[in-house]
Amino acid sequence: MVNGFRPRTLREALQILSANNCTVMAGGTDLMVQRARGFSIRPDFDRPLVFIEPLEELKHSVRENGTLHLGPCMTLSDLLRHPAVPDPLKEIIGMMASPPTRNMATLGGNICNASPAGDTLPWLYAMNAKLKLQSAEKERIVAIEDFITGPKKTILQSDELLTGILVPDTRFHLNRYRKLGQRKGMSLTKASFLGMAEISGNTVTDIRIALGSVAPRIVRAAEIERSMLGRYVGDINAAAAVITERYQPLITPIDDARSTAMYRKKVSLDLIRQFLETLSGSPGTGTKSE
């Protein structure tokens, strides 16, 4: 039998975490499955649980001074309904899990679970999201790519909570997201692709590409993206195969119960190439669209 804490405020929650070695429970949709033991049996927890999902302080989203603040304890359904949440993120969330699970699972949980198949992660990486980590004593802000160190591994300390998700409020005219699952409804991701670009006068002014489930962490290559800035879309189109080739070594998927390494790699590379090739048909280029 484990004990449980139900803090009413963030401050109280942080105090509990600093005084006790606890397991933090948000929506529970990952944790309860990972710890499940069998029919009609309690899951396998050895430390007290701290239930943070009801904390109002962690359930707000606002847009402020060019930054979008997303509440870590907002459920996926909350985010789908919230006016401040940008459409590209809503599109991603709308394809996650199923309504009953979306009603429970939180954005913070998706981040802290740090699965390479975490569906919100490619967007957060692509948007240069920063995370606020707080303990009773201190707080720090880290970039999401520094927060996640490997599959299921983060730098979060046992006395810390993820208390803020800060996303620069950048808009892209071109957003393309593809999630590959085993089926259409309720599927874990075999591979995902997110491409975002801003094009002005036939020139790429900003471009971001992030890939999920094809490496131990989300794949994003700032250097390759930078190499495309300021170039004519026609050039990018012509060089699409060469640019795509640069992603090759970064994509290191595995074979598992859901797919094969070969499939994941080929489709990811094809999606990158296709995205680059269609930039010339996108808004801001003045050419006929595909």
Partner: peptide
């Protein structure tokens, strides 16, 4: 049933 998939209403 996470790894073995049967059709859902969307499939």
């Amino acid at each position: 049933l996470t790894d073995y998939k049967i059709p859902t209403s969307m499939d």
